[in-house]
């Protein structure tokens, strides 16, 4: 039996002040468990990604030189759209069942919990998509170097996309009709990531160095990690306030 866990613990002074790591872990683990119990959320963005990419050759023609040329843009735009599709559910379920209120009122700083949630979301929706991207790269006639650049740029860039779209999702979670609105809010903010992501892949396809582009993507990632959780937390507070 826990020492002070019963209502005898009316005086919460006995409870240790919470550590940030505990809140972060709790959020991350819970969201991963929930995601694995509801597998459709896990696989749908992945299938979407694969299907969108498979439709391009059907729309444009199977010419290897054309496909090679558009491949970086196609993979990146498909990744961007599937992030956008999955992000609407990021806070929606928690908002509907009330656990978002509990998170907001808990002694943990909200931005730490938000960070845990987004990392879980990225692991579940974006990582599988990155892992299949080499296969799709082969289907679009990319060479080994280009595929490597695609992998690296997606690894660095998609977390930034998740963070940006989470800002949109946080601001619209109180609204019934969030979907398209999140897209309109987030898409213009995706531009730098899209430019340097495709830039890296394009440079690799022309056998040029792409380290610079990756470094800039890395800088975006650091900026996003440092600032986006605060914007998201502020957005959630506003959405729950109304």
């Amino acid at each position: 039996m826990g020492t002070e866990l019963n209502p005898a613990a009316v005086n919460p002074a006995v409870v240790k002040p919470p550590s940030m790591a505990q809140g972060f872990n709790a959020m991350l683990r819970r969201d991963l468990v929930v995601a694995f119990r509801q597998r459709s959320d896990l696989v749908n963005p992945l299938f979407f990604f694969i299907m969108v990419i498979a439709l391009f050759p059907l729309g444009i023609g199977p010419e290897p030189s054309t496909l090679q040329k558009i491949a970086p843009g196609v993979i990146w735009i498909a990744a961007l759209l599937s992030t956008l599709l999955s992000v609407d559910s990021l806070f929606r379920q928690d908002f509907d069942d009330g656990s978002l209120e509990l998170a907001l009122l808990s002694p943990q700083p909200l931005f730490v919990l938000v960070l845990g949630k987004i990392i879980a979301h990225w692991l579940v929706t974006a990582l599988p998509l990155i892992l299949v991207s080499p296969v799709l790269g082969v289907m679009l006639y990319m060479d080994a170097d280009t595929i490597q650049a695609t992998l690296c740029s997606l690894l660095l860039g998609t977390p930034v996309l998740s963070m940006i779209s989470a800002i949109g999702a946080a601001l619209t979670v109180g609204l019934r009709k969030g979907g398209v609105l999140v897209a309109i809010i987030a898409l213009p903010l995706y531009v730098p990531v899209l430019i340097f992501g495709t830039g890296a892949v394009e440079a690799a396809s022309m056998s040029m160095a792409f380290g610079g582009q990756l470094a800039i993507l890395g800088a975006f990632l650091i900026l996003a990690l440092a600032f986006a959780p605060f914007a998201i937390a502020a957005g959630l507070r506003i959405s729950l306030n109304g």
């Binding site: 109180g174 898409l187 109304g242």
Partner: peptide, 21 residues
């Protein structure tokens, strides 16, 4: 995007704060 968000939220104060962010 800013205008769309502002129009979507009914409560004037929440709308203003959300668009501010």
């Amino acid at each position: 995007g800013v205008m769309a968000l502002n129009m979507a939220i009914e409560n004037a104060q929440s709308a203003a704060r959300a668009t501010a962010v």
